[in-house]
Simulated scan of single mutants.
Amino acid sequence: MSRHEARRRLALEFGATDIVGERGEEGVARVKDLTGGIGADSVLECVGTPEAMRQALHSARPGGNVGFVGVPHEVRVDGEELFFSHVGLRGGPAPVRRYLPDLIDRVLSGRIEPGKVFDLTLPLDQVAEGYRAMDERRAIKALLKP
Rank of each mutant, 00 (worst) to 15 (best):
M1I: 06
S2M: 12
H4V: 07
E5G: 15
E5D: 15
E5T: 13
R8N: 08
L10E: 10
A11S: 04
L12S: 06
E13C: 08
F14P: 09
F14Q: 12
G15L: 03
T17R: 12
D18R: 05
I19S: 13
V20N: 06
V20M: 10
G21Y: 09
G21N: 09
E22S: 13
G24M: 00
V28Q: 02
A29L: 06
R30N: 09
V31N: 03
K32V: 07
D33C: 02
D33S: 07
T35Q: 04
I38W: 15
I38E: 14
G39Q: 14
A40Y: 02
L44I: 11
L44D: 02
E45R: 04
C46P: 09
C46K: 15
C46N: 12
V47R: 01
V47Y: 05
V47S: 08
V47I: 14
G48S: 00
E51S: 09
A52I: 05
A52T: 04
R54M: 09
Q55D: 14
A56W: 06
S59G: 12
S59R: 12
A60P: 04
A60N: 10
A60F: 14
A60S: 11
P62I: 14
G63P: 00
V69W: 00
V69K: 03
V69C: 02
P72T: 09
P72E: 04
H73I: 15
V75H: 00
R76S: 13
R76L: 15
R76K: 08
V77T: 00
V77E: 03
V77D: 05
E80Y: 10
E80G: 12
F84W: 13
F84E: 08
F84H: 12
S85A: 09
S85E: 11
H86R: 11
H86A: 11
H86P: 13
V87S: 02
V87A: 08
V87Q: 04
L89Q: 06
R90I: 12
G91S: 07
P93M: 09
Y99M: 03
L100V: 00
P101F: 08
D102C: 01
L103Q: 02
I104D: 07
D105F: 08
D105I: 01
R106F: 03
V107T: 07
L108Y: 13
L108A: 13
S109I: 13
S109M: 07
G110T: 00
G110C: 06
R111C: 10
R111P: 10
I112P: 00
I112F: 02
P114Y: 00
P114A: 00
F118H: 03
D119F: 00
L120F: 12
L120R: 12
T121H: 07
L122N: 07
P123A: 03
L124Q: 03
A128K: 11
A128D: 12
A128Y: 06
E129S: 08
E129H: 07
E129L: 10
G130K: 02
Y131A: 03
R132T: 13
A133I: 10
M134F: 10
D135W: 15
R137S: 14
R138P: 15
A139M: 12
A142W: 06
L143K: 04
L144H: 07
L144S: 02
L144I: 05
